[in-house]
Design a protein around this nucleic acid. Structure first.
Lengths: 344, 344
DNA sequence: AAGCGAAAAGTTACCGGTAACGTAAAATCA
DNA sequence: TGATTTTACGTTACCGGTAACTTTTCGCTT
């Protein structure tokens, strides 16, 4: 009953127009501020809009206008990783400021999940898509190409993106970290992360890291890829596992600072001094690092800025401005104090 | 040119039907699996769907069917607070599993932002709304009532919700924490948080806390509401500020564990022993607490479960099942080791 | 073979707006 | 004042699907 009444009370443009004594078209013009009507008419229509509490049906107008909607589909692997939460926040804030809406998709790092989500979200005629990661299923590629809408791939910089790409080069980043670790005199190092996906950015970092470690005469003796979120506790027990299987590791590179902090705690609670007994290197310059006594060796990346950049590229593209295909937002190494002093 | 071609290549149901040699309606029936067609026809249509890469236009079908969409609008204050990121993750995962899409809105704890977002998202004819918090602008209330769609208010349990409510009673929660703090023998206590909004859940916790502290003969001598996110560093400098203005505080209650950990770090780095010099109480049982040597005194709330519950209520309601107006997901106090031993 | 009912397919109208075009009224001009 | 332009508004058709109804086809019965 209540429901029925509500449905009845959901007034549309025709009713507003009728109430104001004008045609539907005139009311439409007034609402869009398109011009071509008198002040008097405008006042009449707006009065009725207020009085009746009219809310336009954007579904209908997008549909009618054959234009795209203001939806932007945004896919993010998971929100348990602080990094992605920040990226999403950056994207949504910027998009919102420009009148766009975020349709969220959590893909759990799985290409099939992403494909399912892409299919669904495309059926809503979004204005564009922002996807995390550069590897998609073949069908996803087909759908994305056919859709003919802007696509921004974020996170891992893609020199030949589907359309646009913004992020950093994770291989290079890992490489720089490795070189730095070598310069601190470490030879036998380990890695603790959670990515089990070869196309993943963290994997790219590990590859770059391994390369420069080996170039420098060292060795990544042990790498752990846990099936878990990249958060504190996996860093803790990952460290335990790694050290249990290889006691000679001198320095550990973690997927991010949260994990690194978990590792720090493990060491501290097990009588290992950082950095004299073991070196700890994080990634991302995350919030937790800001309160530690000893500056965590890490890599600064502005995740919020990454989100902003992605949204800006999308918006620029939608308004017809020329947009470069790739944008590198850069990173910089934070030497920190959780490794031995570098000779550099 | 590419664009034009893409637009042309965006085929619709009519074209599929024509290609398959059937009417639009028959093709529609096949795609919806509605029945009333032969196996042979089904095969013909599906073959063309695959061949042409047809993607249905959900905008049109929602519009035509006069049904609501599968969108659910979800408003969240911010993602810098781990708590809300978890809630959102819980909501989206559950909604996704039932074929719904999340349209995100970050309200920055501001009722006006929320109102703007509600207006926009309602124009997309969502199936329902999930809102964080129980206080909305008068216009928001009007719009929500007029929309005639299910609304779930999460976070702070609302005994007279707009429609449905799920969360915990934050006043009671704060009250329990206060009673526990009193039982540990503390008299002069402080609070560090970030909420400057009186209708906020954290404020409700503070009120409950203050009540029981005063009931127990103690006093909340200093309360700090920072204009910042409820994260690590604000906990750190908030503690510094609080102690600078009142050296006699024996125990501090924080808005969440992240802030509490920031406080812990401040104390440790400034020669204050926890718990002998000062007691630290967090809230939320967040990820960082899992790796600390000393169990952080806190309150466990399952944020993921809260998100699931909200989505479940929404889905149940949409499928016509009876749903209780309120659902309390509960909490429990974690005594921890960052306060003096309780006499309880 | 005619009759009948069910299954399969087609027709029409419509959802709520907007583009494109048409027309009446007001303003400007010769 | 009549012709011409401008402004203000109305009409019609359509976007891409689906509900409701109608028509055709087909198998089965007697």
């Amino acid at each position: 009953m209540d429901d029925k009444q509500n449905k009845n009370s959901k007034i549309n443009l025709s009713e507003v127009a009728k109430a104001a004594g004008v045609s539907k078209m005139t009311a439409s013009r007034v609402l869009r501020g398109e011009g071509g009507y008198s002040k008097k008419t405008e006042a009449k229509v707006m009065a009725k809009v207020d009085q009746l509490g009219y809310l336009p049906n954007r579904l209908a107008s997008v549909f009618a206008g054959d234009q795209n909607s203001t939806f932007i589909g945004v896919s993010i692997p998971d929100l348990g990783n602080e990094v992605f939460a920040q990226v999403l926040e950056g994207i949504d804030r910027k998009l919102g400021a420009f009148g766009h809406q975020t349709v969220l998709g959590l893909t759990q790092h799985a290409a099939e999940e992403e494909e399912k989500w892409i299919r669904t979200v495309l059926s809503w005629q979004p204005a564009g898509l922002i996807l995390t990661g550069r590897s998609h299923s073949p069908r996803s590629y087909d759908m994305l190409r056919n859709a003919g809408i802007p696509v921004v791939e974020i996170w891992d910089l893609n020199s030949s993106p589907l359309d646009m790409s913004v992020g950093i080069n994770h291989f290079d980043c890992g490489f720089d970290v490795g070189r730095f670790v070598i310069s601190c005199g470490y030879k036998s190092v380990g890695f603790v992360g959670t990515s089990h996906d070869t196309a993943n950015a963290a994997t790219a970092r590990l590859e770059g890291f391994t390369k420069s470690i080996e170039d420098g005469g060292g060795k990544v003796t042990k790498q752990l890829c846990l099936h878990d979120t990249a958060s504190f506790y996996p860093g803790f027990y990952g460290t335990e596992q790694l050290l249990a299987s290889d006691r000679n590791v001198e320095c550990i590179f973690y997927q991010n600072d949260s994990m690194a902090f978990g590792g720090l705690q493990y060491c501290e609670q097990n009588g290992l001094d950082v950095p004299s007994d073991i070196g700890i290197v994080g990634w991302g310059d995350l919030a937790v690092a800001s309160v530690l006594k000893r500056r965590l060796t890490s890599v600064h990346v502005s995740h919020l800025k990454l989100g902003h950049a992605a949204a800006e590229m999308m918006i620029a593209r939608l308004s017809g401005e020329p947009v470069p295909a790739c944008r590198d937002i850069g990173f910089h190494l934070i030497p920190g104090a959780t490794v031995r002093q570098s000779v550099l």
